[in-house]
């Protein structure tokens, strides 16, 4: 469906994307995961024909982008990081313009616009001026624009960035509902998002491919044990001792005490260990307040994968959650 072969992009001496190769199968959702500035946007811009690659090529449904750019672009729907909207137009006028731009024949234009409005749940907003829409709605207009001509390949650059939690959920559901008939590539720097939405994940860092796998396998590869946090109303040492007595735990660490409860972190080899922990603590007569798996953060996966691939110094420092997002990507 999509073949990316040895794709590179350099800006002067700086390599933004370095010899990247991967492929996408028909109908799958492929996650593109990496910290800000990893080259996600640059790669997507090269696939969509916005940026010419320095080296390598992009092939969609057997057609090379370099040889027949118009034919390839006809097969791609693209939602850039910033939805490409004209704030002065109404939603309907904007979509009609895009329909003309994408050369949808005049008889099919109105039905195509109606269908896109419906899929993006924008029916009520069709007459509104885009400049007055909320961010969530603008994002949906951006998605409606991308799916307008039913392209086999959809490229979505950070489709949930900057949305509120409800909008994120809606957008994820929309993306999932589009899979199957479309092949979707979406970029994100949030691991959880890739894990819930994507069937396969490509991790890139500093323009290079770090790993391609399913989210579960990646998590497992990085961390074979299950990390759990426990809060229990018991003296820390007593609780720790009780937990160390359990067979499947490899490490037990006391994190702290407060308001009569202790917080501990343990490493478990199996899922069944969670039940054993609960039984042991409750059986000892203590109140179990919390037993929570600690999700790996993207940073940890990176630290682990990139550290293993290229030796310790090559570790990304960017993209800690809550850090202001850098404008590193060009």
């Amino acid at each position: 469906m999509l073949e990316v072969q040895n794709l590179s992009k350099s800006y002067g001496p700086k390599l933004a994307v370095d010899n990247l190769s991967f492929s996408a199968r028909k109908g799958e959702i492929l996650g593109f995961l990496g910290p800000n500035g990893a080259g996600k946007t640059t790669t997507m811009r090269m696939i969509t024909g916005y940026l010419p690659p320095s080296h390598g090529q992009v092939v969609v449904e057997g057609i090379a982008l370099r040889e027949s750019p118009i034919e390839v672009k006809r097969r791609i729907g693209y939602l850039p990081e910033l939805p490409p909207l004209y704030p002065e137009l109404s939603v309907r006028d904007y979509l009609l313009f895009v329909a003309r731009l994408k050369k949808i024949p005049s008889a099919q234009r109105q039905p195509a616009v109606d269908r896109a409005l419906e899929r993006a749940a924008l029916g009520e907003q069709r007459q509104r001026i885009i400049g007055r829409l909320s961010k969530g709605y603008r994002q949906r207009v951006g998605i409606a624009q991308a799916i307008l001509n039913e392209p086999p390949l959809l490229i979505l650059d950070e489709p949930t960035a900057g949305l509120d939690p409800r909008q994120i959920l809606e957008t994820r559901n929309l993306v999932r509902s589009l899979a199957g008939e479309h092949t979707i590539i979406l970029s994100t720097h949030i691991l959880a998002e890739a894990a819930t939405t994507c069937e396969r994940v490509i991790i890139i860092n500093q323009g290079r491919l770090v790993a391609v796998d399913t989210p579960e396998n990646l998590t497992h590869r990085v961390k074979p044990t299950d990390t759990l946090q426990v809060e229990v109303s018991a003296p820390a040492e007593a609780a720790a001792a009780a937990l160390r007595a359990l067979p499947d735990l490899t490490a037990v660490e006391v994190l702290g005490q407060h308001q009569g409860a202790s917080r501990l972190q343990v490493e478990a080899r199996t899922l069944a260990a969670r039940e054993a922990i609960a039984r042991a603590l409750v059986g000892a007569g203590w109140g179990l307040r919390e037993l929570r798996p600690v999700e790996l953060t993207l940073e940890q996966i990176f630290l682990s994968l990139t550290g293993a691939a290229a030796g310790a110094p090559n570790v990304p420092v960017a993209a800690a959650p809550g850090e202001p997002q850098s404008e590193g990507e060009v």
Binding site: R45, I76, P84, P87
Partner: peptide, 14 residues
């Protein structure tokens, strides 16, 4: 500036 250049450049037009 508005990002719509991405739309124009990635649309199937010359």
């Amino acid at each position: 500036r508005g990002g719509t250049m991405e739309l124009l450049k990635t649309a199937p037009v010359r």
